Simulated scan of single mutants.
Amino acid sequence: MEYSYVIQIFLILMFFFFSYLILIRKNYYLISGFNTSTPEEQREMIQAGYPRAVGKMTLHIAIILSLGFLLQLLHVPYAIEGSYVVMLIVLFVEFFWMTKKLKKKSKRINKTVLLLSLMLVIVVFAIPFIPNKLEINEDSFEMTGLYGEIWAYSDIEDISLYDELPETTIRTNGISMFGKHLGNYRMEGWGAGKLFIRSNNAPFMIVQTEDSFIIINAGQPNETEMYFQQLELAYQQYNDNH
């Protein structure tokens, strides 16, 4: 089972478990701020329906993530990303309505947290769209942007174009979202390497080094092919001069 699947299943089970503890077992101390409130404030929260609203919200999130996971198993494009977007919309809408059940001071705090969380989510979803660019140097090439790095031509063993890729076994330090795969991964039969994949559409440029590999896909086939031609020419020129 892929590592990402394990994480998704863990999140789903966690949200279902927390909704069970809050809605069925009435363990309201799990809710942020409830345990530190006075007994009178706790009674007011319960009467206003705040704890149950939190429990329902966690249940809704668990259901949404479950549907996204099932659709992903059916190979529906961007299913898990879509479930995250729906989850965030539900989270913010329900969180906003829950603040109406609290006192003015708590409302201000929760709305501030909501705004900061929204800004953080926007940043996280924008990260995969930060561009990477191939730069050709005299004795090395570089992929700029997120997870960028420089590789010397002397370390290259082969440069090829592939129509298909092996399965990713684990993402050790990277991002997989909206069909983009950036960062450090382990590929079946290949070991550890770095991915700069902007699209799942072929071709893919594979640069094999002495102890690793780099996979580059610029998003558009003609752009990936241009990268391949530029790098292959620079590599041949380097070998001719050395």
Rank of each mutant, 00 (worst) to 15 (best):
L195F: 14
H60R: 07
V76F: 10
I159G: 01
L11R: 02
L233K: 13
K104L: 12
D139L: 07
N217T: 09
W190C: 05
L161R: 02
G49L: 09
T58N: 09
L73K: 11
F178G: 04
I150G: 02
F141K: 02
F141W: 09
Q72P: 00
P77C: 03
G189E: 06
D211E: 15
V90Y: 05
V124P: 01
Q47R: 12
D158F: 07
E149L: 09
S4G: 08
H181D: 15
M205H: 01
I159D: 03
Y28P: 00
I206R: 11
D240L: 13
Y5M: 11
Q237C: 08
T169A: 03
L67A: 15
D240H: 10
K100E: 13
S160T: 15
I61G: 01
L120T: 14
A53V: 04
G145Q: 02
K107C: 06
F10N: 03
Q230D: 11
P77M: 05
A218H: 02
Y29V: 10
H60E: 12
T209G: 03
E44W: 05
F196D: 01
I61D: 00
I63W: 02
E40A: 11
G33A: 05
E232G: 04
P128S: 02
S140C: 07
Y185K: 05
L146S: 04
K103N: 15
E188W: 07
Y227K: 01
G183A: 08
